[in-house]
Amino acid sequence: MATAGLLRDLTETLPRLTAFTLITLGTVLTKTGHSRAVIRPLIRQQVFRAGARLVPMVCFLGLILGVVIVGQAVAVLQQVGAGNLTGVLLVTVVVRELSPLVAALVVLARVGTATVVDLGTARAMGEVEALEALGIDPIHYCVVPRVVGFTIAVMGLTVYLMLVTLFSGYGFAFARGLPLTFPNYLSGIAAALSWIDFPLMMVKTAIFGSLTGMVICYQGLAHPIRLEEVGMATTRTVAICGIGCLLVDAAFVPIYLLL
């Protein structure tokens, strides 16, 4: 029953979310540079809230993931004599898959849910109509800074998470006395990386960030909401964002397989 409800939610949401995204895109294109004194500080605020403030948490997660995934994988590969596959494995798991997805989910869990509550409450209290009454475009004022801020935040956090995970993983392997030097470890990763990994990672993290921001703003703002519905909108946001990010992730697999 719960799965059926979620599927119904997704099919109902998708066309409206697409329309909401197109309206937001139109606003970005037509209002870039408009009201910079208001919009730029809002974007900075969102980058700080969803990005800079989460760096310590992401670094901590990176340390744990490095030990749990990288350290163990390196140890197992060395034990079975497949140490030359270390770079390929780490690039595939950590660089391409894990870091962007975990960064997006951290932003969703730590800031996204609170943002849906903020926006939903503001909508329920009539603040969106108050913005319109002042001639302020709610999409420009509320949605654009959040989507841009979340996009930059997920892109930045992915880089931090990836680097900390890779370094802590090597630290764990080194502590266990595995026969792998740091230059060999780095050169293995560098050899497995292709130049296209960098633009692809940027595109993927940008999609994760903007998708998270769009779903959050859509659930909080796009339709009239009562205060008692804010909690439900928040859980819906988590489910839709989680599934959306996994689907986007899956869509990138064929591209990586062609590399």
Binding site: H34, S35, R36, A37, V38, L134, G135, I136, Y141
Partner: peptide, 11 residues
């Protein structure tokens, strides 16, 4: 100040 800042692009 929000309406003024938004429409007049003021700090």
């Amino acid at each position: 100040t929000l309406p003024l800042r938004y429409h007049e692009d003021l700090s």
